[in-house]
Design a protein around this nucleic acid. Structure first.
Lengths: 133, 133
DNA sequence: CAGGATCCTAAGGGATACTG
DNA sequence: CAGTATCCCTTAGGATCCTG
């Protein structure tokens, strides 16, 4: 798997030369507490504010508002406000949003694949370092 | 959660039934400020503490210590301490760590692919909502 | 060199009350 | 219903000094 390279082949498996690529950009966007959950929920279909709120346990209206607004602003979701009484606002992923949802799903795949391995690694580490502080 | 919902296509493109899958798990691990940067740097090869410190501009020793330790504990990186004076500690990704690095790269790919589109979307949004507060 | 121990602040985010 | 507006508090993380 890993070649016997030291750091000569920095550009082999690193997609960017020596910079941090765009990784921080994505994480600044989805690294918060709720964004991905909203994205995942919206990847299932169109949702209204209230539906999102109930589908994502624990989120406050405030954070849902902030999160949806950020996604909207970034062009990841489309917001449709029906001028009815009471108001109805629908959120749906844009093509770009769906593509992000795809990438996020891959990450979720990884998580499920290695969850047990990581848990076991932690247990073992904790056991081996039981005398430290 | 609510079972009486008439959600027909809930399991179509959603990889998990109605839960949040393991997405939060991953993000709790890589969603912080430095973890991915360390992972990316280590994906280029073995690195010593100092090398990591200099390769990742802005990180403090404290955060580098915490970050590497967490990765180590989770079995994502391997830590080799040479009992020399002065000490030498090498970090390298484990197979599981490399697999995570892969997934992270995919996310970075996405970022680079849509960076401009998002920036443009934001500009437009800001322009259209210049009169709000 | 590779950390540990402390101190301290910025900000993310929760709870609650109000509004169009 | 879909938000706003405030208050408040926890905590990630920076700065600094110390050690084996």
């Amino acid at each position: 798997m890993s070649a016997t390279h030291t750091e000569v082949s920095a550009q082999v498996n690193g997609p960017c030369g020596d910079d941090d690529c765009g990784i921080r950009d994505v994480l600044d966007r989805i690294g918060d507490k709720w964004t991905v959950l909203v994205i995942v929920e919206l990847s299932k279909g169109v949702r209204r504010f209230r539906e999102l709120h109930r589908a994502i346990p624990g989120i406050s209206q405030r954070m849902l508002t902030l999160t949806t607004r950020r996604l909207w602003r970034d062009g990841l979701v489309e917001r449709t406000a029906h001028p009815t009484i009471p108001p109805q606002v629908e959120y749906r992923l844009t093509p770009m949003g769906r593509s992000l949802a795809e990438a996020v799903e891959r990450l979720a795949d990884w998580s499920r694949a290695y969850k047990d391995t990581m848990a076991h690694a932690r247990e073992q580490w904790d056991a081996e370092h039981a005398g430290d502080a």
